[in-house]
Structures are given as structure tokens and as C-alpha cells.
Amino acid sequence: MSQSYLPEGLPAPIPEGDGLSTPYWEGLKAEKLMVQKCNGCGTHQFGPEWICHKCHSFDISWVEAEGKGTIYSWERAWHPVHPALRAREEPYIVVLVELAGAGNVRMIGNLMGDPHQDVVIGSKVEVVFEHHSDNDPAYTLAHWKVV
């Protein structure tokens, strides 16, 4: 993608020092939406944790989730909280997307398209990867667009 949804200059996501979320961020770079799945009981988990919240197993795998979901909630942000956002003269939309194919875990992203569009909870969306390859450190974000 040539142009990012939000202006450059926002903080780049990196894994914690203990590497808990490394598979997620590396997955995004490869255009894969990775979530945790417990090898003990099959529960999906996101954001990641070192233990399965259901069965307390530490034996957890990362699996690829289908990049399709529904809008669980949303907001339209107008006030530019971060200095980099002041370059953008329009508001922006943040959506919370529920992934039915991965145990209804939720992910946050921006909603592509007109920032003034009507947003409807329950709308079907699919993932759009946004690469920030030139940034140091490089990273990829997962956005959403209405299907």
C-alpha cells in the first residue's frame, strides 16, 4: 500500500522484551492474522498470554485466523491526540472486529474508506494489511474494509 490510513509518525508496534506477541507481529508482515490456540483445550486467545485462560495449559500454538469478521463496535475520532495526527484534516474510524472463525476473539483496526461513512455494528468486514516497510523498525498493521 502506497499511502497509510493514518499519517506516518505514530508509534511502531514491537513485541515485548519477553517475545510474547512476536508471532503476531511477524505474522502481519507475512499477511497472516495469527492468534493463539490452546493445545490442551482448543480455546482461541487474543491478545496473547503465556497461559490458556480456560485450562491453564502453557502449551499454546499460534494459528492463522481467517481475515473475515464483523464489526463489534466502532468510534470516529476527531480530536488529534498525537502530534502526527494533526497532519490529517479528517477524522478517522477505529473498529473493533470480532472473528467468528477464531473463537470470537476481537482485534482493533482502522476502517478503510470515507471517514464520514455510516458505520453499522454487525457489518461484515475483511482484513487489509498495511505495510510500513520503510519505517525503522518495519511493521505491518491489520485494517478492515466493509465487504
Partner: peptide, 11 residues
């Protein structure tokens, strides 16, 4: 990093 990594890059 941490929980904010899932939030800040999206504004």
C-alpha cells in the same frame, strides 16, 4: 509494546 501496541498505531 504490550497492550498499547494493539491500540496506538490505530490512533
Amino acid at each position: 509494546q504490550g497492550d498499547n501496541a494493539y491500540l496506538f498505531p490505530y490512533g
